[in-house]
Write a protein that binds this DNA or RNA. Structure first.
Lengths: 127, 127
DNA sequence: AGTGCTCAGTTACCAATGGTTACTGTCGCA
DNA sequence: TGCGACAGTAACCATTGGTAACTGAGCACT
């Protein structure tokens, strides 16, 4: 019999080097998911990306983009111009991550109300 | 026309209070997903959970569990015994998060090889 | 000649989060 | 009079996330 646990933990999810862990460390970093959303319809330049992903500091955006580039999720193309121009585009790997993320977003849309309600209850009771 | 971007960003994903952001902040915290995996087949006590989720420090596990309780993902039941006994069990909300997480795990299983390969390439080239 | 603009970042600094090691408290048992 | 089980806390350090200000190259205006 295959348990639900088997489904969630295939490949030993509790090993630090396990695939799930690697992916969670990546998309768990707060900005990666937003960047994928921003680039899913096509490449953008640094400043356009910054405006699209509201609230991100340039330093942090740079860090995020470099990490995603390193992991093969996007490509960085520099044009030798003045003013400088750098295009960021998702690779097919990056695009394919959009699917799982959309599932998560659907869940979030559907259930966030209950999370917020639980928090409010907790406030009212605990404090 | 509905773009891919619309799918990923329904509800304005770039607003800090948006559902996607709330959920990502929760599951992005590195241990929540592992806890859900550990509890998906039934309640566990603190120590059992600690062993199942290998590598987590007690302080951090406590923090994670308290946050999940606050958000209505699990319940904490204290039995007045000695030695003490505390059971942690997922709520139906917590269980329902298992679905999206499984999708993510599937993706991770299928594609992590390419991520690791991209990292190795980068090492070999860049440094 | 000097001022300011665009773009893609970097630098220096600070705050919040994550993690480690050691300790607490209660009670039955030897 | 310890000893061990269980469920954590406390004190402390390391890593990450975030802010505000600055850099550098060239064009366009005055």
């Amino acid at each position: 019999m295959v348990t639900k646990r088997d489904e969630l933990e295939r490949g030993n999810a509790f090993d630090p080097d396990c695939p799930t862990r690697v992916v969670l460390d990546r998309i768990g970093d707060k900005w990666t998911v937003l960047v994928i959303g921003a680039l899913i319809d096509g490449p953008l330049r640094f400043t356009a990306l910054r405006q699209r992903v509201a609230g991100v500091a340039p330093k942090v955006l740079t860090q995020t983009l470099r990490a995603m580039e390193r992991d093969g999720l996007l490509t960085r193309t520099v044009f030798a111009q003045v003013p400088p121009r750098v295009d960021y585009a998702l690779t097919d790997l990056g695009v394919s991550l959009g699917g799982p993320i959309a599932v998560l977003t659907d869940w979030a849309e559907a259930h966030v109300g209950r999370i917020v309600a639980a928090r409010d209850d907790f406030e009212a009771q605990g404090a």
